[in-house]
């Protein structure tokens, strides 16, 4: 299984990671090598097998539907690269 440079461009865009043209060359090779390994899964017969969703066989517990946290605006903003008036600040998204 190998992928081409256009696919790398596409998934890098989906993952929101900027990659340079040179990096795309290297990534095309590396990701193809990983995908070739993964493709061996095709050899396994999984007809009628239910996908495993959790290794823990248990029922989720229920709790009262009450507020257990909150009023920590300052704490939440403490690590923000940029903040103003109690909000996170991002570059303009609406013209």
């Amino acid at each position: 299984m190998s992928i081409d440079k256009n696919t790398v461009t596409k998934i890098a865009r989906l993952a929101r990671i900027k990659v340079t043209e040179d990096e795309k060359e290297v990534l095309t090779k590396e990701l193809s090598s990983i995908l070739t390994m993964i493709a061996e899964l095709d050899k396994v017969n999984t007809d009628g097998v239910e996908p495993l969703t959790s290794v823990v066989q248990m029922q989720l517990f229920e709790r009262e539907d009450v507020v257990t946290d909150g009023a920590i605006q300052e704490k939440i903003l403490i690590n923000a690269p940029e903040q103003a008036a109690g909000f996170f600040v991002v570059p303009k998204v609406v013209e």
Binding site: I38, L41, D42, V44, T46, V49, P51, L52, V55
Partner: peptide, 14 residues
């Protein structure tokens, strides 16, 4: 092809 296939094989490993 990939994710669900892997989750099925994971069941077999389990």
């Amino acid at each position: 092809a990939y994710y669900n296939k892997a989750r099925k094989v994971r069941k077999l490993i389990w």
